[in-house]
Design a binder for these strands. Structure first.
Lengths: 153, 153
DNA sequence: TATTGTTATACTCTATAACTATA
DNA sequence: TATAGTTATAGAGTATAACAATA
């Protein structure tokens, strides 16, 4: 016997039947993520923006801590940070007590760029959201933190 | 004056303040999408599974139609399809009336692989979902089709 | 001439393994 | 010896531009 998610691959069907939530959610999230990536229009990629956003939200972080927050392996973060430093959006500074660690700081230029890029990146989604009903927007407003919690796990 | 989404970068804050929904949603969706990609454990990638899933849902499609559904450019889909054909999960067949077009069919082997992979991919998310409250799950169940609708735009 | 699909090429993201420097 | 970060290397996804075949 197949699993429930083999019988309900699309979100509308999952909503009707009450089965396959995991599958429907995974598909929807992946599609929307890809769609959002298409809408960015700048020098910074979605991955770089995400790292900058984390630095803005949390303040300075070590390379390892940033990698953990972004859920990537350290070498991947090294590469991303190299791009960000080269673009002048992030500064590498020595750790005060541990010579092995590096502390990453968002530069003023980085903060400004982040704000501008985020506006651009969100423009498409914000426009789409305005086309929804108030109830649907409220639904998404309450769902967003739950999605974050799922990702945090 | 900055946009609302510059003041609320994280989902919980957006939920509290009622601002920055687009930004919070974009961040949450991107994080969860990346997290889900980490959880796959198979020969097929998330992109390949998504293409197979679309073929299963819609039946045979031309290369161009599949690219449109997956929201990628035709050359990207060519590459994905090459991998799928090489893996024996998809067959290329000639279009009955138009010699330029190619019709892509999900093979039986592809359907079986898809089912198995989807189970594996969803296992992590399903487990995480069980840790939520029934209200949160219901929230996501209703949010999933809205996310799909946003992506479809 | 327009359309469909592919090939050529390049760039980004990501990972694992190996290496360096420091604790 | 263990840890933090980087470098080296490789594989996948995506895109644009150029090309082939067909309509």
């Amino acid at each position: 016997m197949a699993y429930a998610n083999d019988m309900a691959v699309d979100a509308p069907r999952a909503a009707r039947t009450g089965t396959g939530l995991a599958s429907a959610l995974a598909v929807a999230v992946n599609r929307l993520s890809r769609r959002l990536r298409q809408e960015r229009d700048s020098d910074l990629t979605a991955t770089q923006l995400s790292a900058l956003g984390t630095l803005r939200g949390h303040g300075p972080l070590t390379a390892g801590a940033l990698a953990m927050h972004e859920r990537v392996q350290p070498p991947s973060m090294t590469r991303t940070v190299n791009c960000l430093v080269e673009a002048g959006t992030v500064r590498r500074e020595p750790h005060p007590t541990d010579g092995r660690q590096v502390v990453l700081h968002l530069s003023e230029q980085g903060a400004a760029l982040l704000a501008a890029e985020r506006r651009r990146r969100d423009a498409w989604l914000a426009q789409r959201l305005r086309a929804l009903t108030p109830e649907q927007r409220d639904l998404l407003r309450r769902a967003a933190p739950v999605l974050e919690e799922l990702a945090r796990g």
